[in-house]
């Protein structure tokens, strides 16, 4: 997914006054609990999960994702074919219906970071920019959890 420089500039302008990373909203669209899995040196890909909440009366759609930590960011979904093989499909847009909560979570839809510029270190944070068709640009801080985490803030049984 791509986005114009205008949108990026607008995004930087909009996020400047925001301090909360947990829930960042533009108009009626809020993004919560954005987290990624830690990666090791040499890893090319990463994954980001989050919840997108539309509290407004109108549907919206996520149309672009970018992050400075990777060359590209794509929304993927898993598809299982008739032979039981799983395949990732890139989505051009994710519909966010009115009054809906869309969870990007393990084994479901997720953001794949393609060509990481450096490893994602546990407990660090990085920015990700989402562009919604109506709500516009939403910039979110992503928290890096352990490689084996299953949810935001997952401390359960994973390697320390």
């Amino acid at each position: 997914m791509r986005m114009g420089y205008t949108a990026l500039a607008l995004g930087l302008f909009l996020i400047a006054p925001l301090s909360r990373s947990e829930s960042v909203g533009a108009n009626h669209v809020m993004v919560e609990h954005a987290w990624a899995r830690a990666t090791v040196e040499g890893a090319d890909v990463g994954v980001v999960y989050m919840s997108i909440v539309n509290e407004g009366p109108e549907g919206d759609a996520l149309v672009s994702v970018t992050s400075p930590v990777s060359r590209a960011a794509q929304v993927h979904e898993n598809r299982v074919d008739a032979q039981g093989m799983t395949e990732m499909r890139t989505l051009d847009r994710v519909e966010i219906p009115a009054h809906a909560r869309i969870d990007l979570k393990p084994t479901a839809r997720h953001v794949m970071l393609v060509d990481l510029k450096k490893p994602l270190i546990y407990k660090s944070t990085f920015p990700i920019t989402l562009v919604f068709e109506k709500a516009g640009v939403v910039s979110v801080t992503v928290t890096v959890e352990k490689a084996g985490a299953m949810a935001h803030g997952d401390m359960d049984g994973m390697k320390m």
């Binding site: 899995r37 890893a43 090319d44 890909v45 990463g46 994954v47 993927h76 898993n78 799983t86 990732m88 393990p106 084994t107 997720h110 794949m112 970071l113 490689a147 084996g148 985490a149 299953m150 359960d156 049984g157 994973m158």
Partner: peptide
């Protein structure tokens, strides 16, 4: 495979959580 960002780490995490 390690370049699988979503499903493979999830399966490995489930497997390790099962050990716990």
């Amino acid at each position: 495979y390690s370049h699988c960002a979503d499903l493979c780490p999830t399966e490995l995490a489930e497997m390790i959580d099962a050990l716990r």
